[in-house]
């Protein structure tokens, strides 16, 4: 697994942050105030960033903190503040009996699926390609070398299409967020 850490140290922290992530996610779903929910979700994302670091995906861990916890959640919080939500009358938004029963049924079905997944076995032997990717020092580009290699060689078209997606999203957000009446003059 990871030779630089003691295995017990590694497992302990893996389980610790996994449990914190699950607890934060449960608190996130049950909070009434949108701001509290958003902050618990940020906590989940930080825990996941730690797990990414422990899974040898340092770049993804950094991106998780910068983009997800730093940018996307700030946009969410900004909208909550902008709309001035958090009014006592608007807080009780958890659905009634029917919705809870449906959620419980779906949750049980998905957890049963988890039970099946836990029984499944994954190949213990690493494929040669993955084994090579796991030796950061042996790669010329360090930890992000393999990612860049994959992103800019195998998936270059998808990468370029992403720019169109982002441009469209920006234009859509501007058009949708614009006030009615404030149209052409500029």
């Amino acid at each position: 697994m990871d030779n630089t850490f003691h295995p017990l140290f590694y497992s302990f922290h893996f389980y610790l942050f996994g449990l914190i992530a699950i607890a934060s996610a449960l608190l996130f779903v049950t909070r009434k105030s949108p701001v509290a929910a958003a902050l618990w979700l940020v906590n989940v994302m930080f825990c996941l960033a730690v797990l990414y670091l422990m899974l040898d995906a340092q770049f993804i861990g950094a991106i998780q903190v910068l983009v997800y916890a730093g940018a996307i959640m700030v946009v969410f919080l900004f909208v909550v503040m902008l709309l001035n939500l958090g009014h006592p009358s608007e807080l009780a938004d958890i659905r009634g009996q029917g919705g809870r029963l449906a959620a419980g049924a779906v949750g049980l079905a998905l957890l049963a699926e988890v039970g099946v997944l836990v029984r499944a076995r994954f190949p213990a032997q690493l494929t040669p390609k993955a084994a090579a990717a796991l030796e950061p020092a042996a790669q010329p580009g360090g930890v992000i070398g393999p990612i860049a290699d994959s992103l800019f060689r195998e998936h270059l078209l998808a990468f370029e299409l992403t720019s169109i997606l982002l441009l469209t999203a920006i234009a859509g957000a501007v058009v949708l967020g614009r006030k009615r009446g404030a149209t052409d003059a500029r």
């Binding site: 699950i22 939500l85 938004d93 958890i94 998905l110």
Partner: peptide, 19 residues
């Protein structure tokens, strides 16, 4: 899988669009 399940349950039980 557990986090995904919690997310699904949240979508099914909440009414606030932002949440």
């Amino acid at each position: 899988a557990v986090l995904f399940t919690i997310g699904v349950v949240g979508v099914l039980t909440r009414r606030n669009a932002i949440i």
